[in-house]
């Protein structure tokens, strides 16, 4: 029995807007266990980010519960990097690392991740000196550096070029098999979902409901988009997505 790190129980989320109440999530239940990689796949604006924000306890559900056991170490790689402009790359990472890890250990982990994300030459650079893709790498490096139990990622590879995407995906998988955190990933790219996830959760248009869930059983390290198995999954997902229109 693996430990549950995040649980959505009958979650509904509504926002009060100018044109009345906007329902974003509708009675959604989902359980994420330690070591799992779960991808939330859905059309843009369907409420995926709202689900992540509730998972991070930044938002409260209107109805239902979002349970994250006490002491769960949560990291969140935001869609737009949220870095402190007055701190360097390394200071930005330390800023959150210091809350969880004592220094000799934190420094070792930081060092490893800076090297793997190819940021070690930029450790003393300030965010405004970095390109968009590099800031996103810092965002991911910061999230990995606290050794999280639960990692939330919102379109983490959005503005990266294909080569770097590939590299960061394998870094993420390597860190995942090392740290065994639970990963809840939001994406609108089916290819990314089938490359990374153990479970792909297909969401409806807003308000988000779970339309279907696909379990993918094949070691992530061996997956490529050329693989007929993946092509089959992708076809299935595309079919379902077209059906949703």
């Amino acid at each position: 029995m693996r430990v549950v790190v995040l649980e959505y129980v009958g979650v509904t989320k509504e926002f009060a807007g100018d044109e009345g109440i906007l329902q974003v999530v509708d009675d959604l239940s989902l359980t994420i266990k330690r070591g799992e990689i779960v991808a939330l796949l859905g059309p843009s604006g369907c409420g995926k980010t709202t689900l992540l924000n509730m998972g991070a306890q930044l938002l409260k559900p209107t109805r239902g519960r979002v349970v994250c056991p006490k002491g769960t170490r949560v990291a969140y790689a935001f869609q737009e990097p949220r870095l402190l402009p007055w701190k360097t790359v390394e200071e930005n990472i330390r800023f959150v690392q210091d809350n969880f890890l004592p220094e000799p250990l934190g420094g070792e982990i930081r060092e490893r991740i800076l090297v793997q994300t190819q940021l070690s030459d930029f450790r003393n650079a300030y965010p405004d000196e970095l390109s968009g893709g590099m800031k996103q790498r810092v965002e991911i490096a910061r999230a990995l550096s606290i050794q999280p139990d639960l990692l939330l990622m919102d379109e983490p590879f959005k503005s990266l070029d294909p080569a770097l995407k590939l590299e960061l995906r394998s870094l993420l998988l390597a860190e995942h098999s090392r740290q065994q955190f639970a990963l809840l990933l939001v994406t609108h790219d089916p290819g990314e979902a089938v490359l990374l996830a153990d479970r792909v959760i297909l969401l409806s248009r807003r308000p988000a409901q779970i339309r279907t869930e696909i379990a993918l059983k094949a070691p992530q390290e061996l997956r490529t988009l050329a693989d007929p198995l993946l092509a089959g999954w992708l076809d299935e997902i595309h079919g379902l997505m077209v059906g949703a229109q």
Partner: peptide, 12 residues
């Protein structure tokens, strides 16, 4: 957004 980030990462 930075304040939210600090909250997620448990800054005091």
């Amino acid at each position: 957004q930075l304040v939210e980030m600090a909250a997620v990462y448990r800054c005091s």
